[in-house]
Nucleic acid binder design. Structure first.
Lengths: 226, 226
DNA sequence: CGCGGGCTTTACAAAACCTTTAAGATTGCT
DNA sequence: AGCAATCTTAAAGGTTTTGTAAAGCCCGCG
Protein backbone atom coordinates (compact mmCIF):
# COMPACT_ATOMS: atom_id res chain seq x y z
CA UNK A 1 0.00 0.00 0.00
CA UNK A 2 0.94 3.66 0.09
CA UNK A 3 4.15 4.90 1.73
CA UNK A 4 3.98 7.88 4.04
CA UNK A 5 6.84 9.85 5.54
CA UNK A 6 6.36 11.91 8.68
CA UNK A 7 8.88 14.59 9.55
CA UNK A 8 8.46 16.25 12.92
CA UNK A 9 10.86 16.91 15.74
CA UNK A 10 8.40 15.90 18.43
CA UNK A 11 8.52 12.13 18.78
CA UNK A 12 5.12 12.10 20.45
CA UNK A 13 3.50 13.61 17.40
CA UNK A 14 5.33 11.26 15.12
CA UNK A 15 4.21 8.33 17.19
CA UNK A 16 0.67 9.57 17.43
CA UNK A 17 0.31 9.92 13.70
CA UNK A 18 2.02 6.60 13.06
CA UNK A 19 -0.32 4.92 15.47
CA UNK A 20 -3.24 6.17 13.48
CA UNK A 21 -1.83 5.36 10.08
CA UNK A 22 -0.36 1.92 10.54
CA UNK A 23 -3.65 0.20 11.32
CA UNK A 24 -4.93 1.61 8.04
CA UNK A 25 -2.30 -0.42 6.28
CA UNK A 26 0.14 2.30 5.32
CA UNK A 27 3.90 1.92 5.30
CA UNK A 28 5.06 4.64 7.66
CA UNK A 29 8.53 6.15 7.76
CA UNK A 30 9.64 8.85 10.15
CA UNK A 31 12.34 11.43 10.65
CA UNK A 32 12.85 13.95 13.44
CA UNK A 33 14.97 16.62 11.85
CA UNK A 34 15.34 18.38 8.55
CA UNK A 35 18.42 16.78 7.04
CA UNK A 36 17.32 13.29 8.01
CA UNK A 37 13.89 14.04 6.63
CA UNK A 38 15.20 15.17 3.30
CA UNK A 39 17.33 12.08 3.04
CA UNK A 40 14.46 9.82 4.00
CA UNK A 41 12.26 11.44 1.38
CA UNK A 42 14.84 10.71 -1.28
CA UNK A 43 15.47 7.21 -0.06
CA UNK A 44 12.00 5.92 0.51
CA UNK A 45 10.19 7.93 -2.14
CA UNK A 46 6.96 8.15 -0.15
CA UNK A 47 3.63 8.79 -1.81
CA UNK A 48 2.81 11.40 0.75
CA UNK A 49 4.74 13.55 3.16
CA UNK A 50 3.59 15.02 6.46
CA UNK A 51 5.94 17.85 7.29
CA UNK A 52 6.22 20.09 10.33
CA UNK A 53 7.19 23.63 9.48
CA UNK A 54 9.35 24.07 12.52
CA UNK A 55 12.27 21.70 12.52
CA UNK A 56 15.70 21.69 14.06
CA UNK A 57 18.56 21.73 11.62
CA UNK A 58 16.58 22.91 8.67
CA UNK A 59 13.37 24.83 8.35
CA UNK A 60 10.44 22.84 7.02
CA UNK A 61 9.84 25.31 4.26
CA UNK A 62 13.40 25.12 3.16
CA UNK A 63 13.22 21.37 3.15
CA UNK A 64 10.10 21.56 1.07
CA UNK A 65 11.49 23.89 -1.52
CA UNK A 66 14.62 21.77 -1.84
CA UNK A 67 12.62 18.62 -2.14
CA UNK A 68 10.42 20.14 -4.80
CA UNK A 69 13.39 20.34 -7.15
CA UNK A 70 13.26 16.65 -7.62
CA UNK A 71 9.97 15.32 -6.34
CA UNK A 72 6.28 15.75 -6.96
CA UNK A 73 5.35 14.06 -3.71
CA UNK A 74 2.10 15.21 -2.10
CA UNK A 75 2.90 17.30 0.98
CA UNK A 76 0.73 18.09 3.98
CA UNK A 77 2.21 20.82 6.12
CA UNK A 78 1.85 20.98 9.89
CA UNK A 79 1.87 24.56 11.03
CA UNK A 80 1.76 25.69 14.63
CA UNK A 81 0.91 29.23 13.82
CA UNK A 82 -2.49 30.36 12.83
CA UNK A 83 -1.16 33.19 10.76
CA UNK A 84 -2.53 33.12 7.30
CA UNK A 85 0.80 34.10 5.91
CA UNK A 86 2.30 30.80 6.93
CA UNK A 87 -0.34 28.92 5.11
CA UNK A 88 0.01 31.03 2.03
CA UNK A 89 3.77 30.83 2.03
CA UNK A 90 3.57 27.12 2.59
CA UNK A 91 1.26 26.59 -0.31
CA UNK A 92 3.28 28.87 -2.56
CA UNK A 93 6.41 26.89 -1.81
CA UNK A 94 4.66 23.81 -2.97
CA UNK A 95 2.67 22.24 -0.16
CA UNK A 96 -0.55 20.60 -1.24
CA UNK A 97 -2.44 20.90 1.99
CA UNK A 98 -1.88 22.03 5.52
CA UNK A 99 -3.16 21.30 9.00
CA UNK A 100 -2.71 23.69 11.89
CA UNK A 101 -1.48 22.49 15.23
CA UNK A 102 -3.01 21.49 17.49
CA UNK A 103 -4.67 19.14 15.09
CA UNK A 104 -7.05 16.30 15.45
CA UNK A 105 -5.21 13.14 14.48
CA UNK A 106 -8.40 11.96 12.92
CA UNK A 107 -8.63 15.01 10.73
CA UNK A 108 -5.07 14.54 9.58
CA UNK A 109 -5.73 10.91 8.76
CA UNK A 110 -8.86 11.86 6.90
CA UNK A 111 -6.93 14.33 4.80
CA UNK A 112 -4.20 11.84 4.11
CA UNK A 113 -6.70 9.28 2.97
CA UNK A 114 -8.52 11.80 0.83
CA UNK A 115 -5.26 12.91 -0.77
CA UNK A 116 -4.16 9.38 -1.54
CA UNK A 117 -7.57 8.54 -2.89
CA UNK A 118 -7.31 11.50 -5.19
CA UNK A 119 -3.81 10.54 -6.25
CA UNK A 120 -4.86 7.03 -7.09
CA UNK A 121 -7.98 8.13 -8.86
CA UNK A 122 -6.16 8.83 -12.10
CA UNK A 123 -3.93 5.79 -12.18
CA UNK A 124 -5.22 2.60 -10.66
CA UNK A 125 -8.78 2.12 -9.57
CA UNK A 126 -8.46 1.73 -5.81
CA UNK A 127 -11.81 0.20 -5.11
CA UNK A 128 -13.82 -1.05 -8.03
CA UNK A 129 -14.74 1.84 -10.26
CA UNK A 130 -17.90 0.24 -11.50
CA UNK A 131 -20.14 -2.07 -9.56
CA UNK A 132 -22.51 -4.06 -11.71
CA UNK A 133 -25.43 -6.10 -10.50
CA UNK A 134 -28.45 -7.73 -12.02
CA UNK A 135 -30.48 -4.59 -11.81
CA UNK A 136 -28.25 -1.89 -10.39
CA UNK A 137 -25.18 -0.45 -11.99
CA UNK A 138 -23.04 2.01 -10.10
CA UNK A 139 -20.24 4.03 -11.65
CA UNK A 140 -18.02 5.55 -8.98
CA UNK A 141 -16.04 7.65 -11.42
CA UNK A 142 -19.10 9.23 -12.93
CA UNK A 143 -21.06 9.03 -9.71
CA UNK A 144 -23.98 7.68 -11.65
CA UNK A 145 -26.43 4.96 -10.92
CA UNK A 146 -28.84 3.09 -13.14
CA UNK A 147 -31.59 0.66 -12.20
CA UNK A 148 -32.74 -1.53 -15.06
CA UNK A 149 -30.86 0.92 -17.29
CA UNK A 150 -32.83 3.88 -16.06
CA UNK A 151 -30.53 6.58 -14.77
CA UNK A 152 -31.22 7.61 -11.20
CA UNK A 153 -30.32 10.97 -9.76
CA UNK A 154 -28.75 10.62 -6.31
CA UNK A 155 -27.23 13.24 -4.02
CA UNK A 156 -23.70 12.85 -2.74
CA UNK A 157 -24.66 11.12 0.48
CA UNK A 158 -27.24 8.95 -1.16
CA UNK A 159 -24.69 7.80 -3.68
CA UNK A 160 -22.05 7.03 -1.09
CA UNK A 161 -24.57 5.19 1.00
CA UNK A 162 -25.64 2.99 -1.87
CA UNK A 163 -22.03 2.45 -2.84
CA UNK A 164 -21.06 1.40 0.67
CA UNK A 165 -23.88 -1.10 0.73
CA UNK A 166 -23.22 -2.36 -2.77
CA UNK A 167 -19.54 -2.86 -2.03
CA UNK A 168 -20.62 -5.15 0.76
CA UNK A 169 -23.39 -6.92 -1.07
CA UNK A 170 -25.01 -9.58 1.04
CA UNK A 171 -23.48 -8.38 4.29
CA UNK A 172 -25.30 -6.41 6.91
CA UNK A 173 -23.81 -3.01 7.64
CA UNK A 174 -24.73 -1.31 10.89
CA UNK A 175 -25.62 2.34 11.00
CA UNK A 176 -22.31 2.96 12.68
CA UNK A 177 -20.39 1.31 9.90
CA UNK A 178 -22.31 3.29 7.37
CA UNK A 179 -21.65 6.53 9.21
CA UNK A 180 -17.99 5.61 9.22
CA UNK A 181 -17.86 4.80 5.55
CA UNK A 182 -20.03 7.62 4.28
CA UNK A 183 -19.53 10.43 6.76
CA UNK A 184 -16.02 9.41 7.71
CA UNK A 185 -15.35 9.33 11.42
CA UNK A 186 -15.81 13.05 11.91
CA UNK A 187 -19.55 12.95 12.28
CA UNK A 188 -21.04 13.17 15.72
CA UNK A 189 -24.72 13.76 15.05
CA UNK A 190 -27.74 11.58 15.18
CA UNK A 191 -27.53 8.09 13.83
CA UNK A 192 -30.95 8.36 12.33
CA UNK A 193 -29.62 10.41 9.42
CA UNK A 194 -28.83 7.06 7.93
CA UNK A 195 -32.48 6.06 8.00
CA UNK A 196 -33.56 9.24 6.35
CA UNK A 197 -31.08 9.14 3.51
CA UNK A 198 -31.62 5.47 3.07
CA UNK A 199 -35.31 6.17 2.78
CA UNK A 200 -34.53 8.60 -0.03
CA UNK A 201 -32.40 6.04 -1.81
CA UNK A 202 -35.18 3.51 -1.61
CA UNK A 203 -37.68 5.97 -2.94
CA UNK A 204 -35.48 6.81 -5.86
CA UNK A 205 -34.51 3.24 -6.62
CA UNK A 206 -38.08 2.03 -6.33
CA UNK A 207 -37.42 -0.23 -3.41
CA UNK A 208 -38.00 -3.66 -4.89
CA UNK A 209 -36.30 -5.29 -1.92
CA UNK A 210 -32.88 -4.19 -3.14
CA UNK A 211 -32.04 -2.93 0.31
CA UNK A 212 -33.27 -5.02 3.20
CA UNK A 213 -33.73 -3.80 6.72
CA UNK A 214 -32.23 -6.13 9.28
CA UNK A 215 -34.08 -5.04 12.36
CA UNK A 216 -31.91 -4.30 15.34
CA UNK A 217 -28.76 -4.51 13.26
CA UNK A 218 -28.65 -2.49 10.08
CA UNK A 219 -29.15 -2.75 6.34
CA UNK A 220 -28.14 -5.15 3.59
CA UNK A 221 -27.93 -4.76 -0.17
CA UNK A 222 -29.41 -7.75 -1.94
CA UNK A 223 -28.99 -7.56 -5.68
CA UNK A 224 -26.97 -10.34 -7.31
CA UNK A 225 -23.69 -9.64 -9.01
CA UNK A 226 -23.70 -9.69 -12.78
CA UNK B 1 -16.57 -5.09 28.02
CA UNK B 2 -14.10 -2.24 27.93
CA UNK B 3 -13.09 -0.39 31.08
CA UNK B 4 -13.06 3.40 31.07
CA UNK B 5 -11.68 5.70 33.72
CA UNK B 6 -12.86 9.29 33.99
CA UNK B 7 -10.79 11.79 35.94
CA UNK B 8 -12.33 15.20 36.44
CA UNK B 9 -12.81 17.33 39.52
CA UNK B 10 -16.32 18.40 38.59
CA UNK B 11 -18.73 15.70 39.70
CA UNK B 12 -21.34 16.97 37.28
CA UNK B 13 -19.08 16.24 34.34
CA UNK B 14 -18.11 12.86 35.69
CA UNK B 15 -21.74 11.95 36.17
CA UNK B 16 -22.76 13.23 32.79
CA UNK B 17 -20.14 11.20 30.99
CA UNK B 18 -20.84 8.13 33.09
CA UNK B 19 -24.50 8.44 32.32
CA UNK B 20 -23.71 8.32 28.64
CA UNK B 21 -21.22 5.49 28.81
CA UNK B 22 -22.85 3.01 31.15
CA UNK B 23 -25.83 2.29 28.93
CA UNK B 24 -23.36 1.42 26.20
CA UNK B 25 -22.14 -1.38 28.38
CA UNK B 26 -18.81 0.04 29.50
CA UNK B 27 -17.37 -0.47 32.93
CA UNK B 28 -16.92 3.07 34.19
CA UNK B 29 -14.58 4.12 36.99
CA UNK B 30 -14.17 7.66 38.23
CA UNK B 31 -11.83 9.84 40.23
CA UNK B 32 -12.06 13.50 41.14
CA UNK B 33 -8.50 14.47 41.85
CA UNK B 34 -5.05 13.76 40.55
CA UNK B 35 -3.58 11.37 43.12
CA UNK B 36 -6.77 9.32 43.28
CA UNK B 37 -6.89 9.27 39.49
CA UNK B 38 -3.37 8.00 39.16
CA UNK B 39 -4.04 5.30 41.70
CA UNK B 40 -7.27 4.31 40.01
CA UNK B 41 -5.50 4.07 36.70
CA UNK B 42 -2.92 1.72 38.16
CA UNK B 43 -5.52 -0.32 40.01
CA UNK B 44 -8.19 -0.77 37.39
CA UNK B 45 -6.01 -0.74 34.30
CA UNK B 46 -8.68 0.81 32.11
CA UNK B 47 -8.65 0.45 28.36
CA UNK B 48 -9.27 4.13 27.94
CA UNK B 49 -8.82 7.20 30.07
CA UNK B 50 -10.75 10.47 29.93
CA UNK B 51 -8.64 13.08 31.68
CA UNK B 52 -9.31 16.68 32.55
CA UNK B 53 -6.24 18.86 32.30
CA UNK B 54 -7.09 20.97 35.29
CA UNK B 55 -7.19 18.93 38.46
CA UNK B 56 -6.75 19.66 42.13
CA UNK B 57 -3.81 17.99 43.80
CA UNK B 58 -1.97 17.17 40.63
CA UNK B 59 -2.02 18.71 37.23
CA UNK B 60 -3.58 16.50 34.55
CA UNK B 61 -0.49 16.75 32.41
CA UNK B 62 1.73 15.70 35.23
CA UNK B 63 -0.53 12.77 35.89
CA UNK B 64 -0.38 11.84 32.26
CA UNK B 65 3.38 12.00 31.98
CA UNK B 66 3.76 9.94 35.14
CA UNK B 67 1.25 7.41 33.95
CA UNK B 68 3.00 7.12 30.62
CA UNK B 69 6.02 5.67 32.32
CA UNK B 70 4.14 2.47 32.87
CA UNK B 71 1.07 2.42 30.72
CA UNK B 72 0.12 2.63 27.08
CA UNK B 73 -3.52 3.32 27.84
CA UNK B 74 -5.41 5.40 25.30
CA UNK B 75 -5.96 8.88 26.69
CA UNK B 76 -8.52 11.48 25.70
CA UNK B 77 -7.77 14.86 27.18
CA UNK B 78 -10.43 17.33 28.23
CA UNK B 79 -9.11 20.83 27.79
CA UNK B 80 -10.72 24.11 28.71
CA UNK B 81 -11.54 25.97 25.57
CA UNK B 82 -9.00 27.38 23.16
CA UNK B 83 -5.86 27.01 25.18
CA UNK B 84 -3.85 26.14 22.14
CA UNK B 85 -0.79 25.47 24.16
CA UNK B 86 -2.63 22.95 26.29
CA UNK B 87 -3.49 20.87 23.29
CA UNK B 88 0.00 20.92 21.93
CA UNK B 89 1.55 20.08 25.22
CA UNK B 90 -1.08 17.45 25.83
CA UNK B 91 -0.39 15.67 22.61
CA UNK B 92 3.32 15.95 23.11
CA UNK B 93 3.07 14.45 26.58
CA UNK B 94 1.30 11.47 25.15
CA UNK B 95 -2.42 12.08 24.90
CA UNK B 96 -4.04 10.33 21.96
CA UNK B 97 -6.94 12.68 21.38
CA UNK B 98 -8.50 15.68 22.99
CA UNK B 99 -11.88 17.30 23.33
CA UNK B 100 -12.33 20.94 24.21
CA UNK B 101 -14.75 22.02 26.90
CA UNK B 102 -17.56 22.75 26.67
CA UNK B 103 -17.99 19.52 24.78
CA UNK B 104 -20.89 17.56 23.42
CA UNK B 105 -21.24 14.36 25.42
CA UNK B 106 -22.28 12.66 22.26
CA UNK B 107 -19.08 13.64 20.55
CA UNK B 108 -17.01 12.40 23.44
CA UNK B 109 -18.83 9.09 23.42
CA UNK B 110 -18.38 8.81 19.68
CA UNK B 111 -14.66 9.38 20.03
CA UNK B 112 -14.41 6.85 22.80
CA UNK B 113 -16.17 4.25 20.75
CA UNK B 114 -14.07 4.98 17.70
CA UNK B 115 -10.90 4.71 19.74
CA UNK B 116 -11.89 1.42 21.30
CA UNK B 117 -12.96 0.07 17.97
CA UNK B 118 -9.55 0.89 16.57
CA UNK B 119 -7.80 -0.65 19.53
CA UNK B 120 -9.72 -3.88 19.20
CA UNK B 121 -9.46 -4.03 15.44
CA UNK B 122 -6.23 -5.95 15.29
CA UNK B 123 -6.85 -8.42 18.07
CA UNK B 124 -9.89 -10.64 17.90
CA UNK B 125 -11.38 -11.64 14.57
CA UNK B 126 -14.56 -12.83 16.32
CA UNK B 127 -16.16 -16.16 15.57
CA UNK B 128 -16.40 -17.87 12.23
CA UNK B 129 -18.27 -15.88 9.65
CA UNK B 130 -20.09 -18.80 8.11
CA UNK B 131 -21.20 -22.00 9.79
CA UNK B 132 -22.09 -24.78 7.39
CA UNK B 133 -23.86 -28.01 8.25
CA UNK B 134 -25.59 -30.75 6.36
CA UNK B 135 -28.86 -28.95 6.27
CA UNK B 136 -28.33 -25.61 7.95
CA UNK B 137 -26.13 -22.82 6.74
CA UNK B 138 -25.63 -19.72 8.84
CA UNK B 139 -23.94 -16.57 7.57
CA UNK B 140 -23.03 -14.23 10.41
CA UNK B 141 -22.02 -11.35 8.15
CA UNK B 142 -25.28 -11.37 6.28
CA UNK B 143 -27.25 -12.58 9.28
CA UNK B 144 -28.97 -15.05 7.05
CA UNK B 145 -29.89 -18.67 7.53
CA UNK B 146 -30.85 -21.33 5.05
CA UNK B 147 -32.22 -24.80 5.67
CA UNK B 148 -31.82 -27.13 2.71
CA UNK B 149 -31.06 -23.98 0.73
CA UNK B 150 -34.32 -22.32 1.66
CA UNK B 151 -33.73 -18.92 3.19
CA UNK B 152 -35.26 -18.54 6.64
CA UNK B 153 -36.27 -15.24 8.14
CA UNK B 154 -35.13 -14.97 11.75
CA UNK B 155 -35.33 -12.08 14.18
CA UNK B 156 -32.21 -10.78 15.89
CA UNK B 157 -32.61 -12.92 19.00
CA UNK B 158 -33.62 -15.99 17.07
CA UNK B 159 -30.57 -15.66 14.89
CA UNK B 160 -28.19 -15.21 17.80
CA UNK B 161 -29.78 -18.12 19.59
CA UNK B 162 -29.33 -20.45 16.66
CA UNK B 163 -25.81 -19.19 16.15
CA UNK B 164 -24.89 -19.83 19.75
CA UNK B 165 -26.20 -23.36 19.50
CA UNK B 166 -24.63 -24.01 16.12
CA UNK B 167 -21.25 -22.79 17.34
CA UNK B 168 -21.46 -25.45 20.01
CA UNK B 169 -22.86 -28.22 17.88
CA UNK B 170 -23.35 -31.43 19.82
CA UNK B 171 -22.94 -29.79 23.22
CA UNK B 172 -25.78 -28.96 25.52
CA UNK B 173 -26.11 -25.29 26.40
CA UNK B 174 -28.09 -24.35 29.46
CA UNK B 175 -30.60 -21.56 29.39
CA UNK B 176 -28.21 -19.53 31.46
CA UNK B 177 -25.40 -19.97 28.98
CA UNK B 178 -27.71 -19.02 26.19
CA UNK B 179 -28.92 -15.95 28.04
CA UNK B 180 -25.30 -15.00 28.51
CA UNK B 181 -24.35 -15.48 24.89
CA UNK B 182 -27.44 -13.95 23.35
CA UNK B 183 -28.63 -11.36 25.83
CA UNK B 184 -25.19 -10.65 27.20
CA UNK B 185 -25.09 -10.65 30.96
CA UNK B 186 -27.35 -7.64 31.39
CA UNK B 187 -30.60 -9.52 31.33
CA UNK B 188 -32.54 -10.05 34.53
CA UNK B 189 -35.92 -11.28 33.38
CA UNK B 190 -37.48 -14.67 33.14
CA UNK B 191 -35.39 -17.52 31.93
CA UNK B 192 -38.35 -18.85 30.01
CA UNK B 193 -37.77 -16.34 27.22
CA UNK B 194 -35.30 -18.80 25.90
CA UNK B 195 -37.98 -21.43 25.53
CA UNK B 196 -40.25 -19.08 23.69
CA UNK B 197 -37.69 -17.87 21.21
CA UNK B 198 -36.35 -21.33 20.75
CA UNK B 199 -39.85 -22.44 19.96
CA UNK B 200 -39.99 -19.82 17.25
CA UNK B 201 -36.71 -20.97 15.80
CA UNK B 202 -37.95 -24.54 15.67
CA UNK B 203 -41.13 -23.46 13.99
CA UNK B 204 -39.26 -21.52 11.36
CA UNK B 205 -36.61 -24.15 10.77
CA UNK B 206 -39.21 -26.92 10.56
CA UNK B 207 -37.97 -28.73 13.62
CA UNK B 208 -36.75 -32.02 12.22
CA UNK B 209 -34.86 -32.72 15.41
CA UNK B 210 -32.22 -30.12 14.59
CA UNK B 211 -32.48 -28.76 18.10
CA UNK B 212 -32.95 -31.30 20.86
CA UNK B 213 -34.38 -30.60 24.27
CA UNK B 214 -32.30 -32.02 27.08
CA UNK B 215 -34.79 -32.11 29.85
CA UNK B 216 -33.67 -30.41 33.03
CA UNK B 217 -30.54 -29.05 31.38
CA UNK B 218 -30.94 -27.13 28.18
CA UNK B 219 -30.77 -27.51 24.41
CA UNK B 220 -28.44 -29.03 21.88
CA UNK B 221 -27.95 -28.43 18.17
CA UNK B 222 -27.68 -31.68 16.21
CA UNK B 223 -26.91 -31.18 12.56
CA UNK B 224 -23.68 -32.67 11.27
CA UNK B 225 -20.89 -30.47 10.05
CA UNK B 226 -20.33 -30.30 6.34
C1' DC C 1 -28.96 39.14 0.07
C1' DG C 2 -32.47 36.02 -1.06
C1' DC C 3 -33.08 31.44 -3.28
C1' DG C 4 -32.80 26.60 -3.62
C1' DG C 5 -30.93 22.22 -2.87
C1' DG C 6 -29.25 19.18 0.17
C1' DC C 7 -28.32 17.78 5.00
C1' DT C 8 -29.84 17.14 9.71
C1' DT C 9 -33.04 16.94 13.30
C1' DT C 10 -37.38 16.05 15.19
C1' DA C 11 -41.67 13.97 15.79
C1' DC C 12 -45.15 10.67 15.28
C1' DA C 13 -47.31 6.56 13.64
C1' DA C 14 -46.78 1.94 12.18
C1' DA C 15 -44.53 -2.27 12.33
C1' DA C 16 -41.77 -5.67 14.35
C1' DC C 17 -40.29 -7.53 18.18
C1' DC C 18 -39.66 -9.11 23.10
C1' DT C 19 -41.45 -10.59 27.43
C1' DT C 20 -44.67 -12.41 30.31
C1' DT C 21 -48.26 -15.34 31.39
C1' DA C 22 -50.80 -19.31 31.55
C1' DA C 23 -52.97 -23.22 29.79
C1' DG C 24 -52.01 -27.60 27.79
C1' DA C 25 -48.58 -31.32 26.57
C1' DT C 26 -44.88 -34.18 27.53
C1' DT C 27 -41.59 -36.59 30.17
C1' DG C 28 -39.62 -39.23 33.88
C1' DC C 29 -40.26 -41.30 38.14
C1' DT C 30 -42.45 -44.14 41.56
C1' DA D 1 -51.09 -45.42 35.90
C1' DG D 2 -50.61 -41.26 38.49
C1' DC D 3 -48.01 -37.36 39.78
C1' DA D 4 -44.81 -33.70 39.63
C1' DA D 5 -41.62 -31.42 37.12
C1' DT D 6 -40.60 -29.65 32.93
C1' DC D 7 -41.38 -28.08 28.44
C1' DT D 8 -44.23 -26.13 24.45
C1' DT D 9 -47.06 -22.86 22.49
C1' DA D 10 -50.39 -19.31 21.79
C1' DA D 11 -51.82 -14.89 22.85
C1' DA D 12 -51.77 -10.32 24.98
C1' DG D 13 -49.35 -6.27 26.41
C1' DG D 14 -45.64 -3.34 26.28
C1' DT D 15 -41.38 -1.80 24.34
C1' DT D 16 -38.17 -0.81 20.85
C1' DT D 17 -37.04 0.09 16.23
C1' DT D 18 -38.01 1.82 11.85
C1' DG D 19 -40.25 4.69 8.00
C1' DT D 20 -41.31 9.06 6.64
C1' DA D 21 -43.05 13.64 6.60
C1' DA D 22 -42.04 18.15 7.88
C1' DA D 23 -39.30 21.89 9.40
C1' DG D 24 -34.93 24.19 10.14
C1' DC D 25 -30.21 24.89 8.93
C1' DC D 26 -26.37 25.72 6.12
C1' DC D 27 -23.93 26.81 2.06
C1' DG D 28 -23.08 27.93 -2.64
C1' DC D 29 -24.99 30.64 -6.32
C1' DG D 30 -26.91 34.13 -8.73
Amino acid sequence: MAKILIIDDEPSIVNLVSAYLKPEGYEVYTATDGPAGLKAAKTYKPDLLVLDIMLPGMDGLELLSRLRRESEVYVILLTARTEETDKIVGLSVGADDYVTKPFSPRELVARIKAALRRLNAGSSPGGAEILSFKRVRLDAGARMVTVDDHPIDLTAIEFDLLKALAENRGRVLTREQLLDKVWGGTYFGEMRVVDVHLGHVRQKLGHESLITTVRGVGYRFEDEPL
